[in-house]
């Protein structure tokens, strides 16, 4: 599904990604872990096409297509979704209207029929119920006045509605209490299928107890220094990053 080959990127003059190679086959969930400043969020932004980052080398193939050649909205239409670590507020923009406009833009690009207001609301209400979100979150403005947890759940709601082929979750667990964490994990688990993959960026092993990954990669100073099965996350939790990163260095 996703194949990253020697990806290098910088912001301004600062090298952040120094050659990342990674394969996420369809149907798999991979976790990216690593200390602060290791380049985890940058990887998410670069995959989604943030213009603040300059790709200086390497390639990314997404479902066989050249991801780096696409505009951010084309990546979304192709089935990529980034759940933001700090979701943006859009004052005055109604959440339901935003989601429906986004969904229909994506459906149009995929050659599918657009959903009318009634059909969309039915879908959105069902999904938000599953995520234990109050109905009024659909009526409020996008992320405006949302608590940290509500913002994260809103990201998962967007994901559930847009039905991506690959979701990149950037520290979606940060700032969540244990109940909210479980809801978010359940939201992602519900999407798991042979056609859905996820790249879960996280600091803690906690999320991975609920969202069990197929592979875990440890990122340090812009490189993947170790990869392994789910047990690697538990090892990190027990010994800290220092041991793993030092081993690699």
């Amino acid at each position: 599904m996703l194949s990253v080959n020697n990806l290098q990127a910088r912001i301004d003059d600062k090298e952040i990604l120094r050659g990342i190679s990674l394969d996420v086959p369809a149907g798999q969930v991979h976790a990216i872990m690593g200390p602060n400043g290791s380049g985890k969020s940058t990887l998410g932004y670069v995959l989604a096409g943030h213009e603040g980052y300059e790709v200086t080398g390497g390639s990314v193939s997404f479902g066989g297509a050249d991801l780096l050649a696409m505009e951010p909205e084309e990546r979304a239409a192709a089935g990529l979704f980034l759940a933001f670590q700090a979701p943006l507020e859009l004052p005055g923009v109604n959440n339901a209207n935003f989601l429906r406009t986004a969904l229909n833009a994506v459906r149009r690009a995929r050659g599918e029929a657009e959903l009318d207001a009634v059909g969309f609301l039915r879908l959105a209400r069902a999904e938000s119920k599953r995520l234990h979100m109050p109905d009024d979150m659909l009526k409020r403005n996008v992320n405006v006045g949302f608590s940290g947890g509500e913002k994260k759940r809103n990201e998962v709601l967007q994901m559930a509605i847009l039905r991506p082929k690959l979701a990149v979750l950037d520290e979606t667990d940060s700032g969540l209490d244990i109940d909210a964490l479980r809801i978010v994990a359940d939201g992602v688990n519900a999407l798991r299928s042979p056609e859905f993959s996820a790249l879960v960026i996280t600091h803690h092993q906690r999320l991975l107890d609920h969202l069990v990954p197929d592979r875990v990669h440890v990122l340090s100073q812009g490189r993947i220094v170790r990869s392994g099965g789910p047990e690697l996350a538990r090892e990190l939790e027990a010994n800290g990053y220092a041991g793993v990163v030092a081993d690699a260095a």
Partner: peptide, 28 residues
């Protein structure tokens, strides 16, 4: 903000659509 536009685009909206949404929200 550029990041607001990026957020919208990462959801599949074109830049024009994103500006339209934000401006209409501003004028609501």
């Amino acid at each position: 903000a550029d990041d607001q536009l990026f957020y919208c685009r990462s959801r599949g909206l074109s830049e024009e659509d994103a500006v339209g949404l934000i401006v209409n929200g501003f004028c609501k």
